[in-house]
Design a protein around this nucleic acid. Structure first.
Lengths: 158, 158
DNA sequence: GGCGCCGGTCGAGATCGTCAAGCATTTTAC
DNA sequence: GTAAAATGCTTGACGATCTCGACCGGCGCC
């Protein structure tokens, strides 16, 4: 589905999405129209979801981040989900298996804001919140090359 | 620190990091050299951490994502952190307050891989894993305008 | 008031992207 | 087995874009 050239292009773009076609072309050994066409198709196929910019939340005044686990009260699942989506300080939310239904990332400017936001969910869900103290790994894509971890095994008797 | 023009530039770039200077200039009502200069300074100041591309993990064969909470055994904190950092399938990791020391996102191609990777940590930490079933909110930046949620309150008797 | 800095514009030259045409290789169909 | 069609690439030319230097105006500060 993705050939080696595509992967190399992606690798370069992950580091700098504004790399010029010419530069990309030089690095992978193609002409720029070819690169242009490949990018177009990667976007078209949805492999590239977006070219975007990573902003330091601190620069916007968000001095605090938290991971919030959210367990909606019976019957409130959809309302809670909608509520979360509408609160822009939630910067990420996953619906997961297990007791916690949602795990979300929250950006806030102060502890007061944190409290204010959690209050808005409090009557519809139980939450448990963990403040982020450090970020050992900031968002990065999984390995692009097919050679991921050796873990590869099929479900079978071990 | 950031003026309105900067914020508007960021807003446009979040949606498409490859927007041309000319287009940016037109949208905010400046000349392109000015925009260029502003971007340069935003990068320099670290407001813009990177221009990057968002890749669909599925396109790379990662059919499964999980949130893993990790509690290193006594004395193993640093070893565990290093281990996590070295496993490229961890696409994000936060060090948090509370019983769980780390919360991480894991990209895998199969349940077998998931098991394989968790095994590598099993003797140094307790983990609890939640498989991601859906992503109500995919990574997005917090509000750029100063008018965040009304939550704003200072710590005080309520 | 005069000075210097900051952030802006303008215009020219250099760079880059896009388009059409054409070519080689592979696939498909008969 | 061969011919047609489809892919994916290159090249070169043209138009669009970026960058750089020169210059300008507002603002804070002696």
């Amino acid at each position: 589905m993705l050939d080696d050239l595509d992967r190399r292009l992606l690798e370069i773009l992950v580091k700098d999405a504004r790399t010029s076609l010419k530069e990309l072309a030089a690095q992978v050994g193609l002409s720029s129209p070819s690169v242009s066409e490949r990018l177009r198709r990667l976007e078209e196929r949805g492999v590239i979801r977006a070219f975007t910019v990573e902003i330091d939340p601190l620069a916007l005044g968000y001095t605090l981040q938290a991971i919030v686990r959210i367990r909606p009260l019976p019957g409130k699942l959809h309302i809670v989900q909608k509520l979360i989506e509408e609160i822009p300080e939630f910067g990420e939310c996953d619906k997961v298996t297990g007791d916690d239904c949602f795990v979300a990332r929250l950006f806030v400017r102060s502890i007061g804001d944190l409290d204010g936001i959690l209050d808005r969910i409090a009557d519809k869900a139980e939450t448990s919140t963990a403040i982020i103290k450090a970020q050992p790994i900031r968002r990065r894509p999984p390995p692009l090359d097919a050679t991921a971890s050796r873990g590869a095994k099929i479900l079978q008797a071990s």
